[in-house]
């Protein structure tokens, strides 16, 4: 199934993940992904008919709580100060529309 990973497949994954890659990186990840996927294919040896998938190792149930306002340690100014680009108390982003 995963003996070979094509250049197009790596480019498609990079696009889904929003990661720009150089040609050298694409070549490297084609090999790395094929190696790793080749290794994990050993799971096909395991019979998993009628086995329920498990999301985490402990029994957990859904937890709900009242929705309420909590004043955290950080001030709005502190939170905003972490943004790489800002203006007049807002986070600034590049244009979305042409």
């Amino acid at each position: 199934m995963a003996e070979k990973i094509s250049k197009e497949e790596v480019e498609y994954l990079a696009k889904l993940a929003r990661v720009g890659l150089t040609d050298a990186e694409i070549t490297k990840y084609r090999k790395d992904l094929a190696d790793i996927l080749g290794y994990v294919e050993k799971l096909n040896e395991v019979n998993t008919d009628n086995v329920e998938p498990m999301a985490q190792g402990i029994k957990a149930k859904n937890v709900t709580r009242e929705d309420r306002i909590e004043i955290l340690e950080g001030t709005p100014a502190e939170l905003l100060s972490e943004a790489p680009s800002k203006e007049d108390g807002f986070i600034k982003v590049k244009s979305i529309f042409e």
Binding site: V40, L43, N44, V46, T48, V51, E52, P53, M54, A55, G57
Partner: peptide, 8 residues
């Protein structure tokens, strides 16, 4: 598949 093997 991995989530099922995880249970096993």
């Amino acid at each position: 598949k991995a989530a099922k093997v995880r249970r096993l």
